[in-house]
């Protein structure tokens, strides 16, 4: 039960993220929702990589014992970097939209709908 706890948190975070994206009308809050959703994947990856009693896979002066596989951490790190890039781009879009339209409410950002 205790070992499965992180997976419940993953699902909870993902649901919070999706709910924020679907229910909020403020663009900045929607972008935050996307970030929360991305964090839930990161947590999922890290949890998958956890082994009880495992040590970091650094061979120099290793005390012996079970080493964890570093792949999930590499994946998480990559996703964090990608997440930073996309969040930055989304937020800069939001800034331009606020400057040009004077609002960040998605109901009012509808110049393109015909």
């Amino acid at each position: 039960m205790f070992l499965n706890l992180p997976f419940f948190v993953v699902v909870l975070l993902a649901l919070i993220g999706i709910a924020t994206i679907l229910l909020k009308r403020n663009l900045i809050k929607i972008i935050l929702g996307v970030t929360i959703l991305a964090s839930s994947v990161n947590l999922f990856l890290v949890t998958l990589g956890y082994r009880e009693g495992g040590i970091a896979p650094i061979y120099t002066l290793a005390p012996g014992g079970v080493m964890v596989m570093p792949t999930p951490h590499a994946l998480t790190l990559t996703n964090i970097v990608i997440g930073v890039a996309t969040t930055a781009l989304l937020l800069s879009f939001a800034i331009i939209i606020h400057r040009k339209y004077g609002t960040v409410n998605v109901d009012e950002i509808r110049e393109l709908r015909e």
Partner: peptide, 13 residues
């Protein structure tokens, strides 16, 4: 005038 950014935002989202 922000319209292209709106399209980019939708695409990226």
């Amino acid at each position: 005038k922000g319209r292209a950014v709106e399209a980019g935002l939708k695409y990226l989202m």
